[in-house]
Simulated scan of single mutants.
Amino acid sequence: MRVIPLRVLSLGLLAGLTIVAWAPGVPPAFGDDLIPAATIDGEGPGWRALGPEDFEDVNLGADAWTWKDGLGHCRGTPVGVIRTRKQVTNFELVAQWRHLAPGGNSGIFVWAPAKALEGLKPGHLPPGGIEVQVLDNGYTEQFEKQTGKKADWFTTHGDVFPVGTSKMNPFPPLSPDGSRSFPRERRSLGVGRWNHYYVRAVNGEIRLWVNGKEVSGGDRCEPASGFLCLESEGSPVEFKGLRIRELP
């Protein structure tokens, strides 16, 4: 195996790629081994870190999130969100996340409209925005055990879907009801392990890379400008390496 560092600029959007190349005849590994992929690291011109000074509480209370040395810890209760202090339109986002309990649930809201956040009561999530799902792999088993229903309407590997009043034309493969873009590969690592998300949102189109490979997304998003939100939904979760680059 060879690790080849590259710096790539494509239409001014992509920078800082690390390509993992595998020797001929050696199959790529997944799970406990290195994931073969190109990872955008959020370094280069225009990128900046996101930290506690960039977010404000919406409906959680001051102690739901704590920050130390670039790591944001969310205790998971109550249910709700924090949001960026400013709205964004076209951007790239890098985020690493890990769940600290089996079956953890969280998410990143993109382009959440101001109206969806105004007066949002504790225990509720915004009724608007495009959600980039952040689920632990154990959520599927827990859902089926608790409900007795088949978990065929979601995955734990990077679903992207519109929430509430927001709209999106999802890229295939689709959920059974056609509302979600399902990931093309199973890329997420389990509880306690760091996962890497790269989100590119440009001109109403959103695309998600999970651990280095593009898996899901959609276009014709409405609205295509708004706040970024980090979600608290019942289980402790941590984020680190949050970096953003705003685009024209």
Rank of each mutant, 00 (worst) to 15 (best):
M1L: 09
I4F: 03
P5M: 08
V8W: 02
L9R: 09
S10C: 11
G16I: 02
L17M: 02
T18A: 04
T18G: 06
P24H: 06
P27V: 06
P28N: 06
I35P: 00
P36K: 06
A37C: 05
A37W: 01
A38V: 12
A38T: 10
D41S: 11
E43D: 07
P45I: 07
G46M: 06
W47I: 03
G51T: 00
P52Y: 01
F55N: 01
E56A: 11
E56T: 03
D57A: 03
D57W: 01
A62Q: 09
W65F: 13
W67H: 09
H73V: 02
P78K: 09
V79I: 15
G80S: 07
R83Q: 13
R83S: 14
K86Q: 15
V88P: 03
E92T: 13
V94M: 14
Q96L: 14
W97G: 11
P102F: 08
G104R: 09
N105S: 12
S106R: 13
V110F: 11
A112S: 15
A116R: 06
L117M: 11
L125H: 14
P127Q: 12
G128M: 11
G128T: 12
E131I: 11
V134L: 15
V134R: 02
L135F: 15
D136P: 13
T140Y: 12
E141M: 06
K145I: 11
T147D: 04
G148P: 10
K149W: 02
K150I: 10
K150V: 14
K150W: 07
T155S: 13
T155G: 09
G158N: 07
V160F: 06
F161W: 12
V163S: 03
S166H: 01
S166A: 04
K167I: 09
L174N: 08
L174P: 00
D177E: 05
D177Y: 02
S179W: 10
S181G: 05
P183A: 10
R184E: 05
R187S: 04
R187G: 01
V191C: 10
G192A: 04
G192S: 05
W194E: 00
R200K: 07
N203L: 07
G204M: 01
G204V: 05
I206L: 13
V210T: 11
N211S: 05
K213P: 01
E214S: 05
V215Y: 08
G217V: 04
D219N: 15
E222S: 13
E222M: 10
G226P: 11
F227H: 14
F227R: 04
C229W: 07
E231N: 08
E231T: 10
S232C: 10
E233C: 12
S235Y: 09
E238T: 01
E238C: 06
K240A: 09
E246F: 04
L247N: 03
P248A: 13
P248T: 03
